[in-house]
Simulated assay, not measured.
Amino acid sequence: MTEIVNGADGSADVAVRLPAMRVAYDGGSLNESDLAPTWTEQLRKWLDEALAHGVAEPNAMVLATADADGLPSSRTVLCKGLDERGVVFYTNYTSAKSHDLTVTRYASATFPWYPLQRQVHVRGAVEKVDPAETAEYWASRPRGSQLGAWASPQSQFVDGRRDLDTALKAIERRFRDVEQIPVPPHWGGWRIRPDVVEFWQGRQDRMHDRLRFIRTEDGWQVRRVAP
């Protein structure tokens, strides 16, 4: 809900009334009998449905990490791999997120599919992706993305946009005559090997469905969690 407020200069500002903002979740339900046999199959199913629904970048996930002092950070990354081992994203190994992961070896990620009133939460230990697997994905990236990975000192302070543009131009000159740009030594993949994968479906009156795959010594178990 919003209201129009006239400013002192006669201009109209939109004041967001946060306490009154709410959405009725009535998009569906999630029962134990609806789940696929494994968390990977269920995640693929919901990814396919998000894509079919036209959700923008359905593989986008909010990655949360913590540094050595326990201070958290979150940002959006793209899931570029999914199998029984876990979910994979790629980044600069000198970035802030990589420094966090190197220290704690643990992360969580959430796929937020708002139009479907769904989300999936994954958390577990992390590991670096094998260089051969990284190279295979790297070869599929657009040339511009490859050049950007070489040029950007990710998470480091820069004096201005011009520094980034200058760095990119220098890399373009460096690889001008190179058909296949190599993987930067500071770049690669991280895999989250989940201990927990939770599937969340919005329901009326905030009585949401939360079904959680939990890794145990005897294999994966499914438990319902109160909203």
Score class of each variant (00 low, 15 high):
S74M: 10
G219W: 09
M21C: 14
A64S: 14
V158N: 10
D48H: 12
R85N: 13
E3A: 05
V158R: 13
R176L: 10
L82W: 03
T38S: 15
R212H: 03
K169C: 05
T91K: 05
D13M: 11
V178N: 04
N59H: 14
L35G: 00
P115K: 04
A109D: 04
S152R: 10
H99F: 05
L51R: 11
V55D: 09
R174H: 13
I192F: 09
T110P: 02
G189A: 07
P194D: 07
A170Q: 15
V197M: 12
G70E: 09
L101G: 00
D100Q: 03
R162Y: 06
P182G: 11
S95R: 07
Y90R: 03
D165K: 07
E172L: 08
A60Q: 05
L116V: 03
P227K: 08
T38V: 09
L47H: 15
G70M: 05
G70H: 06
H208T: 07
D34T: 01
R118L: 03
I4Y: 12
F213P: 00
V16W: 14
T102V: 08
R22N: 14
D205W: 11
D9V: 09
F175Q: 02
A24M: 09
A132P: 02
M21H: 13
Q117F: 05
W200F: 11
V122G: 00
T38P: 11
N31S: 05
L116I: 04
T166Y: 08
I181R: 01
K169Q: 15
P131S: 08
D130F: 04
S140T: 15
V222Q: 03
S155K: 08
P131A: 06
G219V: 04
A107P: 01
E3P: 00
V129A: 00
W190N: 00
V196F: 14
P37I: 06
P227T: 11
P184I: 00
Q154H: 13
R193Y: 03
L35M: 09
L71Y: 08
G7S: 14
H186N: 10
Q180Y: 08
R85F: 07
L82V: 06
A20E: 15
V183Q: 09
E84G: 08
G160E: 02
R174Q: 15
G144A: 02
I4S: 10
F111H: 02
T65H: 00
G144T: 06
S155I: 10
S73M: 05
G10N: 11
E179F: 05
A151Y: 04
G10W: 12
A15Y: 12
A68H: 09
L168R: 14
R173D: 15
W113T: 01
P115F: 09
D218C: 05
T40L: 06
R206Q: 12
D83R: 11
T216P: 04
H121W: 07
G148N: 12
V222H: 05
A109W: 01
Q154V: 07
R123Q: 10
R191W: 05
R123A: 00
V103S: 14
H186V: 02
D159T: 09
W150K: 04
G27M: 04
P37H: 10
R141D: 08
V126E: 02
D165E: 15
A135K: 14
P185G: 11
A68M: 03
Q117A: 04
A60C: 10
L71F: 10
V222R: 02
